[in-house]
Design a protein around this nucleic acid. Structure first.
Lengths: 252, 252
DNA sequence: CGATAATTTGATCCAGTTCAAGCGACGTGG
DNA sequence: CCACGTCGCTTGAACTGGATCAAATTATCG
């Protein structure tokens, strides 16, 4: 492993929790590292920095960002507790990472990480497996970005965010800004806002707080995410709509 | 490696050529396998098939396809000689692979592949490295799909296709159909066609044949791919344009 | 409590889609 | 060797989802 093994760090979401066997898995490496705190909005590292450390998110949320030459911003992913940051065999970090909320991290020297990965087949398999899930996720994201409407994008996003919680209709925590969501889904902040409003007016979600969206009708949200049009869109309980469920699409 | 290591096969483009050291690299595994031929348009395997084989493209080009529930088609990638198909530790292939042109492949049993990967650190590193490049590419593709205009998409695509050849201005081979390109870039066949025409009218490329595009002004193509607007767009030699280079954008 | 940033909402615009023909290359059969 | 059908591609015209521009509204923070 002293070779210039180039493992792209876009390896976000390397979640440790659901390791296939009883071992603590990859997170065991971090178990004895001290925690570091970052305030919301601060940067953990920048794209182009020498990639010397691997981080594990302990609490809070961070965003991984890529900037295009002309200033367009893309959010590669949002990372949560259990996810790893900066896993790479490249020399430099490939994206910038910033704290969305107050964040706790543990860090681990990259070269040691590589040594351990080389030494422990179990860890290697775990990492491999994670990488592959990552790849799959990246491709799904590509599909989402290329072929889905704003409605479908936002619905999928909410479902994905919700999947980190359990229960039927639930409050999804969205600590990131609307701009972050827009940059993640490849749309504008205005469209994110409008689409959210639409979902809310339809009674599919409620927005008690800017950073909380409560899913009221999971089934409806799922249909929208799947690309099934019309139907279910209007059946609000707290709301009056023209009966007959006629013009499902247009609602200005 | 007898664990259910789940390596998503979206691992296209695992090109062997440029192995970092002298070894034959991953392709050595396939060296003694016999070649199989597939006619253009035929399928090599389908999404959902049991993933028992790994393939190496020897000649020709194949496309990896993903279908959405509602029929929308996404092309995950085009694979060329040296690329590997179906590298995965998942049970099933994640996408369908079809021959774009007449194709020669070598196949290798997946379980043996995994055994060899587990046994040979060098191969493992190569595979790791490839996976990471793949990941990086997948993210670049996501950026392309989400934030770039039709012009930028097509220009980038042509440059990428051209990168497999050498020379200054050159004939790029595009064996795939316009529909394939559209499904790869997340646009419609009409827009692909219009954009191509525009590039041709601008004197940046020539289209002697439907499946060949000759790059005449590499620099201009690069600027477009980078998102630099106007400029250079109009300077055709075989063509009369309103002098002054005024309205560079609109050209119907 | 005012300043500043984030979000929503409104009005218009436009790139790219959609719908609808035309066109040209290629293969087939007469 | 040429009419003819097919298929892939190009071109045209109209439409539209989402972007863009602009402004009002609502947090957030010192």
């Amino acid at each position: 492993m002293n070779m210039p093994l180039r493992l792209v760090q876009p390896t976000n979401h390397i979640s440790i929790e659901d390791a296939p066997f009883g071992t603590a898995g990859l997170s065991s490496l971090f178990a004895h590292q001290s925690r570091e705190h970052f305030a919301a909005g601060t940067s953990i590292f920048w794209e182009g920095d020498k990639a010397t450390q691997i981080f594990e998110v302990v609490s809070g949320m961070v965003r991984a960002i890529r900037l295009l030459s002309d200033g367009r911003r893309i959010i590669v992913g949002f990372l949560r507790p259990g996810d790893l940051l900066g896993v790479s065999f490249k020399d430099q970090y490939v994206y910038t990472v910033e704290a969305v909320t107050k964040v706790e991290l543990r860090r681990f020297p990259r070269h040691l990480f590589e040594v351990e990965i080389a030494r422990q087949p179990i860890l290697r398999e775990l990492l491999f497996s994670r990488l592959c899930d990552e790849m799959s996720a990246a491709q799904d994201q590509a599909v989402l970005l290329s072929r889905r409407s704003a409605d479908e994008k936002l619905a999928s996003f909410l479902l994905r965010m919700a999947s980190h919680r359990i229960g039927q209709h639930m409050a999804v925590d969205l600590p990131m800004t609307r701009q972050d969501i827009a940059d993640y889904l490849g749309m504008t902040i205005e469209t994110v806002s409008r689409t959210t409003t639409k979902l809310s007016n339809s009674g599919i979600v409620a927005t008690p707080d800017r950073h909380i969206i409560t899913i009221l009708r999971m089934d409806a949200l799922r249909s929208i995410a799947e690309g099934e049009e019309c139907e279910t869109w209007f059946a609000p309980s707290t709301f009056n709509t023209p009966p007959g469920g006629g013009s499902a699409k247009r609602n200005g």
